Amino acid sequence: MNYTYILKCSDNTLYTGWTNNLEKRLEAHNNKRGAKYTKARIPVTLEYYEVFDSKEEALRRECEIKKLTRMQKEKLILSKKP
């Protein structure tokens, strides 16, 4: 499985990425072994994710989400909340 995800950082910014192991990647971000962007913004929390069969699909979706405005990303996050 491959995932595209959105994290909320401690400074309230949003970070979008992809991984093939969501739990391990979230742990890496919070242990300053994730992206350079999140290292200075821990702790991060997982706000949203989508599941894909292929890496290519996840990467494509990551690019799409990164082009969204913050407001559009927040709407996306809210659309998946129970």
Rank of each mutant, 00 (worst) to 15 (best):
M1D: 04
M1G: 06
M1S: 08
N2R: 07
Y3D: 01
T4S: 14
Y5R: 06
I6G: 04
L7Y: 09
L7M: 04
K8A: 07
K8S: 11
K8P: 00
C9L: 13
S10Q: 11
S10T: 11
S10N: 13
D11A: 05
N12C: 04
N12H: 10
N12S: 10
T13Q: 14
T13V: 05
L14P: 10
Y15Q: 12
Y15A: 10
T16H: 02
G17R: 05
G17T: 08
W18L: 02
W18Y: 12
W18A: 01
T19A: 03
N20C: 10
N21I: 00
E23Q: 11
E23R: 13
E23H: 11
E23T: 08
K24W: 05
K24T: 07
R25S: 07
E27N: 11
E27Q: 13
A28T: 01
H29T: 04
H29A: 03
N30R: 10
N30W: 09
N31G: 03
N31M: 08
N31C: 08
K32L: 13
K32S: 10
R33V: 00
R33G: 03
R33P: 02
G34V: 08
A35D: 14
A35W: 06
K36P: 02
K36E: 15
K36A: 15
Y37S: 12
Y37D: 06
A40I: 03
A40N: 15
A40P: 06
I42T: 15
P43Q: 12
V44A: 14
T45P: 02
T45C: 08
L46K: 05
L46T: 04
L46S: 09
E47N: 04
E47A: 11
Y48G: 04
Y48S: 11
Y49L: 07
Y49T: 08
Y49A: 09
V51G: 01
V51W: 02
F52G: 03
S54E: 12
S54K: 14
S54C: 05
E56L: 13
L59D: 00
L59Y: 07
R60L: 08
R61K: 15
E62M: 02
E62F: 01
E62H: 05
C63P: 00
C63F: 06
E64Y: 05
K67T: 03
K67R: 12
K67N: 13
L68V: 03
L68P: 00
T69V: 13
K73W: 03
E74V: 14
E74Q: 15
E74R: 13
E74I: 14
E74K: 14
K75Y: 10
L76K: 08
L76A: 06
L76W: 09
I77G: 10
I77D: 04
K80T: 14
K81V: 11
K81W: 07
K81L: 14
P82C: 04
